[in-house]
């Protein structure tokens, strides 16, 4: 969260150095950290809605991926069902893309948790959402 400290600096020239990508990144983090706006479900919906699938800049995509994975891994297994109940079908497809993306860059314990996510999403939207994760040209 050290990046947030930089934001308080209001001297006239700093706005020229603002990295837009980081800025949006921070925005997400604020929501996540505040906890006042909503719980993990809201965080998940928010990151999935604003997923930069069509973006050409790989850095932006990676940031979004890291953030989404952070949200996914912070939601406990017991909360997953409640969480998925509030997602519509399009968001479930986006979520499936991030789950597969998460498998590509495993961290400690992440894969088993993502497998739980995968199983629950699969139970709702079937093999269709897996096929869509692979068939779409706009990847997560």
């Amino acid at each position: 969260m050290s990046r947030n400290d930089g934001k308080k600096d209001s001297s006239a020239s700093t706005f020229r150095k603002i990295d837009v990508d980081q800025y949006s990144d921070n925005n997400f983090r604020e929501e996540d950290a505040d906890g006042g706006i909503g719980g993990p479900t809201e965080a998940l919906i928010s990151v999935l809605r604003s997923a930069p699938l069509g973006c050409k800049n790989q850095q932006v995509k990676d940031n979004a991926r890291n953030l989404t994975l952070k949200v996914l891994l912070s939601i406990k297994s017991t909360q997953i069902d409640d969480c998925l109940g509030q997602l519509d079908r399009d968001l479930l497809d986006v979520l499936m893309k991030y789950i597969y993306r998460g498998f590509e860059i495993p961290t400690e314990g992440s894969s088993s948790h993502l497998l739980t996510w995968h199983e629950k999403v699969y139970n709702i939207s079937g093999v269709g959402s897996i096929v869509r994760a692979f068939a779409d040209s706009k990847r997560a």
């Binding site: 709702i124 269709g128 869509r132």
Partner: peptide, 24 residues
Amino acid sequence: HNSSICIADATKGNAVIRLYTEHL
């Protein structure tokens, strides 16, 4: 190949209805 069925209607301004199924 994304398991969808889509219908476009010329009499409704080429509006597209999409159904994403859970099948192969």
